[in-house]
Computed example of a mutant assay.
Amino acid sequence: MEITRIGSGLGDPAAIEALMPELLAFDTVVNRASGLGADFDPIPEDLRHSLTSTSRYRTTLTWIGRIDGVIVAKGVAELRLTSNTDTAEVWCGVHPDHRRRGLGSALLTVMENELRAEGRTALSSYCEIPESVRVAELRGAHLPTETGAGTLPVAVPEVAFLHRRGYGFAQIERCAVAPTATAAGLDLGADADDYVIETWRGPVPEQRLEHIALLKRRMSTDTPGAERFGGEESWDGERVSALDEEKKVRGEEMATALALLDGEPAGFTQVGHSADRPAVGWQGGTLVRREHRGHRLGARLKVANHRSLAERTAVERVYTWNAVENSWMLAINDQAGFSTWAWVGLWTKNRR
């Protein structure tokens, strides 16, 4: 297998554009084989952005494996550039027709060795298992997470692969989906407190940039299991604006709900939706600061944001992800009409 590496923004633009149809076809085949469904098919602008754009905060590396000129394997590494610069989030996939031949291991070995040589020694990865697949393997052996909360079937190839490659099964998340109208129609009753919830679509307003930056910093430390995937991330208003600009280039719009108490940020939630797939929403960050918990802010934020989506967009359903030990957020999502779609295993590997 011949392996080539592409650094985001470093390849020849014409060559990248010529490569796009082949990579889109490969990613689509891999996704359909996973059983996750058409909503998870690659979005062209997202793929193009990962190959052509970089920023001072994050960048992407892509490895392509070919046999006789045909793409049979692909790997991706997401790199942080201003904090946690020893980390990398990696993923690799093999075409269904070429599996069980060692190609995934060969590609991942190249990726790991190159990343380690560049100082990226704390690796993380993930695998997404549809609920139907997990249920089908309930009677077989299961691998527990390091937290003790949740398991995945050992017989699932993605689980076996990462376990065999020395990755520790750190955490599991539930991916759930709900009709936008369900949460939008919830009546949580009157709130006897002074919290104010603002909603908007598109870029973060200038007067809220530092508020969102603070909440994103806290996301990297306050969510369950965050310490396993790196330390606190550096966020400021400038980085929030830069992220908004990236999303605009990709044709993605964010719907945001922000909770304030006496003008100070208490929590937020965001949902992104793409012009390429307008009926589908993807949950971004959701956080209620520790000192503001116990006021149903998580539910109130999600309901407010879903109402905004229902009234102002074509989004019909939203997917969300939560750690299984995050029982309070799971309860909020259950109340909002979310049902399990898939399970996401989060894995870590340190190679110092």
Rank of each mutant, 00 (worst) to 15 (best):
E146L: 14
E158F: 01
S105G: 15
R165C: 07
T151P: 03
I172Y: 00
G140H: 07
A160C: 03
H142P: 01
P144H: 04
P157Y: 10
L107T: 09
A178E: 01
T180H: 02
S125F: 05
P144D: 04
R165S: 11
P144E: 04
S125H: 07
R164K: 15
A117S: 15
R164P: 00
A136E: 10
R164W: 05
F169C: 04
A136D: 08
A183E: 00
R120H: 13
H163C: 03
L143K: 02
A178H: 04
M111W: 10
L107V: 11
C127M: 01
L123R: 10
L123G: 11
A141V: 07
P179C: 08
R134E: 09
Q171A: 13
G119Y: 04
E137G: 00
F169M: 05
T121H: 13
P144Y: 04
E137A: 14
R120F: 08
H163S: 14
C175P: 00
L107S: 07
H142M: 12
A141H: 05
T109I: 03
V110M: 05
V154L: 15
R165K: 13
T147D: 05
G166M: 09
A176H: 03
A184Q: 09
F161W: 11
T109V: 06
M111C: 11
G150K: 06
E128Y: 02
A176W: 02
F161S: 08
G140F: 06
E114D: 15
G185Q: 05
H163I: 01
A117K: 08
L162K: 02
F169V: 02
H163D: 15
M111I: 15
E118A: 15
C127Q: 00
S132I: 01
T145A: 06
G166S: 09
E158A: 15
